[in-house]
Each structure stands twice: as structure tokens, then as C-alpha cells.
Design a protein around this nucleic acid. Sequence first.
DNA 1: ACATCATGTTGCC
DNA 2: TGGCAACCCTGATG
Length: 583
Amino acid sequence: MTSFPRVLIERDTDGEDSSSSSDDDGDEEEEGEPEHQNVAEIKESVVEDWESESKKKSKASITIAFKKVCKVCKRSGHEAGFRGATYVDCPMKPCFLCKMPGHTTIDCPHRVVLDQGAVPAPRRNNRSPLDYIFERQIQNKIPMMKPAFVIPDQVDCAVIRYHSRRITCLEFHPTNNNILLSGDKVCVTQFFAFNVACSYDIAYDLEIGIIGQLGVWDFVKVHEKTVYGNIHSCILNNMRFNPANDGTLFGASSDGTVSCTDLETGMSFPLMDINPNGWQGPSTWRMLYGMDTNSDKNVVLVADNFGYLYLVDMRSNEKMREDTLIHKRGTKVVGLHCHPIQPELLLSCGNDHFARIWDMRKLDASLASLHHNRVVNSAYFSPQSGSKILTTAQDNRIRVWDSIFGNLLSPSREIVHSHDFNRHLTPFRAEWDPKDPSESLAVIGRYISENYNGAALHPIDFFDTSTGQLVAEVTEPNITTISPVNKIHPRDEVMATGSSRSIFIWRPKDKVERVEEREDAKIVLCGGSKKTNKKFGGESDESDDDTFNSKGKNSKSKRDGKSGRSALTKVKAKPMKNSKTKS
DNA sequence: ACATCATGTTGCC
DNA sequence: TGGCAACCCTGATG
């Protein structure tokens, strides 16, 4: 409260403020805001000490100042924001975590603080007879001792500022264990901006590709300071390796093509173009989002922003069937996933608040529709048996659906977890640990921060979805940014994280060399200036050839870099043009 | 320690 | 259905 100014005046007429106070829960006109009814008087430059104001304006001075208002609800008397490393919510809004009114995240029952950090509610639904049946059945099948989860919880190496924009997807190489692919995305509007302020149709006429970046990084050779440069590709919404040839990668692109990129050369060619007639206006321009490959059927599956699914033969590049509407017409299909065992089964999810299970032989009706309250960011079959489905929705809930022991009408588990939508962040997606034999470990980054000894950090959460328990929250003091993209290695005890423009490789603590050893050359700084997070990329060793070494010092100063644009040559991510031209 | 800005999407009307 | 605001913990930069 020391941050409140002593003298307050309502900032006047933000047109929408009145509307915002009306649209959000007009029920909460509590006595905490006596001055709200007196705005007119206050605007008459009645100035009050904020503390006495709460005691009903007794005196008026002449001083004029601006009243501090809450940046969330635009009202006075409180202020949302950080107090040190703890974020204080606006009390006028529903809980930012569970979305229920009446409390804030600090008091949220889904954010019980134990030791340090957040523990979710054990589960929302009461146990049903199905649960007990499930337990009895599964107990006969699994070993008595459930193997312990392996949590890669210590940063082993990192590439700082690898990409020029935020990272959108990560993919481990299917055969080379040490290769990580990363994609970023230049937004269409930015594309408009720097390409002479043109629009999509002009770009189309000019045959300008929309540029996203594809990074290929050998994270073991970071020691030897070898980082492959970035390969330009078209804007990637999703990528998958070609199951028949791990040297090529398929990409679903917003330009409506399925691209096939050769990782050696960086050359790519379109497998399919769903805008064969070119630009007919934004209402008809189709963009591809969800994608997966099916090696049994030799098809690439992609889905677009109008709800349609397309199948392309990988070898002949022929479309396999008529375009099929699989989600509400006009809504984006953001995710596709093929069942790991049964090649006919397909899972899709999209902006119509549904995830759907399909039999690919009979796509006119879905086998099941999993309803969510908000947009579904992702939906994945469990990696081994495919019997469970993990979905992430924008209502801040992770759901597990059981196709064997559950009825799929409602999730078998709901975990409240902070992963809100934010236009600046890549959408969060909960992902299975592909190595977990019990198919229960899932990872997802957390939006809201926790105060870790004075530092506001956004952990990466590991859930045991079979119990709903948070089993690990992984943090690193030097990663102060949110980590929406996380991928667990399919074979090694490794996890990759994309956080803002940087990539981090985690391993279990006992598998990481001691810090003294790794300080030498495990953090590579790419591109831009070196103002980065504290230790990572801190002081640079400019005498080095093409990378910066991390010194692990200056963990205090966040902006301690000096100049240092010079020393990055071949390693760096090519900076995007950042022209300010706008029409 | 601030201010600014980039600029996507959802959901409502 | 199309148009249009609101959007809460961003992150980089100056």
C-alpha cells in the first residue's frame, strides 16, 4: 500500500471503462468503492488523501493529481500488479486461475501453497464406481512398483535468443537423439507491416513467402560451439517428420500449403496447396494449422481454419479424399493426432470447443465429441496405448479423458492449472511424457508466477494425471520468462523448452555436469544484443569465434550486457527485418 | 524504474 | 454472420 499515491483523482472518461464495469459482473458493487458513485465530484478536482478518502471524503485540498486506477478494472482503491515478486490480483475480477468469482489467485483453493509453489486440487469430480473398477483392473496389469517419474529439472545447455520471434514449436529428431528442431512464427500482420505495408493478396501476387524460421540445433555439440544456422521456411503452425525419411520435415503453413523441407539443404517445396485459385479475399483464404502424419496409411493429415480436414498421400502428393468438415464450419482446427496403435483413429481439436475422435474410414460422423468450455489448444492420445486423451483448454483446465474406462462424455479428470491465452504467448499445450510406461506424466508450462525467494518465476509443471497431483515444478532462477513450449524427448531423459526466443535443454539433476564444468560453453547466445536473462548470456567472451560463453556471474543484474552484437556471425539467428513501415 | 510497442484472437453484439 | 472491442502476471527496447 505504500505504492498508492496519496492524492487521487479519477482519470476521466475512458469511454469503455463504464462499459467494462457493466459487462463484468455488475454484481460486485461492494462497499470497497464508495468513491465510484462520486466520480463527478471527484472530477471537479476534489482531491483527497486516499486513506481518508476511504473514510468518506472529509476534506478537500487544492492539489491536483491523477488517481491511480487498477489497470485491470480501471477502478480506484486498489491496484493489480506485482508487489515485489508476488502478483496481486484485481479483486473485481474472477479468480485468474480457476475463473470463479469471489476470490483471487492468492486464495484460490486450487493454489494451495505447500512448501513452495502451487498444488492443484486433487480432483474436481468425486470418484465414481468406474474409478474403482479402473484401479482394480489396472492393478493386475502394472508392476506393483510404479516406476518413479524422471523429471528433467536442471538446465543442461541453452541457446539464448536463438529465434528472432517467440518460439512456437519444438520437435526432437526421430533418429538423431541430439537434434532439436524449433520453429517460430512471424505473424501475418507483421508480414504486412514490413513488406511495404501490403496485404495478403499483394503478397500472393508478388509470390512473397511468409517467412518463419526453422532452427536446427545439435544440443550436444554446443560444447563444440556448433549450432546450425536457421533455415528459412514458410510460416509454420505445426511440423512433423516424414516417417519414411527422417531427413525431411513436413510443415503446415498459413499460406495454405503443406511444405516438405529437406533438412540438409533447407529447400522446401509444397506438397499441397489448398488455395489453388489464389487470393480471393480473406474470407476464403485457407490456412493450415493442425497436422500429423500416419505412416500406416502414408498420408499427411492437415486441417485448416475453416474446420476442414485434408489428407495427402506422402508419395504421390495427391489429395486422398474430398475435403471433410470435421469441426464447426468456419472454426480453426488447431490440432490433429493419430492414434499410436490403431491407424484408423484420429483425434482433432479446435476452436469450436471440442476435441473429436474419428474413424478415418468413416469421417462423416465422429466417434466421440469431447466438450470443453473454451477453445481447445491441444489434444493428444496417450503415447503408448492411446487409451487416454490429454487436452488443454483455454478455460485453465487440463483434462484427461479415458476411452476405455470412461465414457468420454465427461473427463475422467480435470486439473485446474494456469495456462491462459495471451496474445503474446504461444498457446500452452500439455504434453505426455512419451517414455512414461504408466502413461500418466504430463508436462505444461505455467502462466502465473510464484514467488521463489524473491524472484517471480514461471515454473514448468509436471502432473501425474492418474492422481491429479503436481509432481514437480521445474524452475531455474535465470529463466524469468514464461515457457509455453515444452517437449519431452522420446528416448532420452531430456526435455526441451522454448521460452520467448530462447531454447533450454533440461536433464535430471544427476545427469548434468556440475555447474563449474558447464559454465564454460553450454550457453550459446545467438543474435541480437546480449541483454538477456541474467546468468544465461550474461557477460560475453567476445574473443571467441562464433558463440558466447556463459559466465554464470552477474546473476543480479538483468541488463548487464554491454554491446556485443559483433561476435555472432554464423551461429546467430538471422534477425528479422523490423521495418516500421505501415500504411 | 519507467514508458512504449508489437499486434493475435476470442467472444460478444 | 461480420464486425469489433477487449485482452490480467509479455518481453524487448530505450
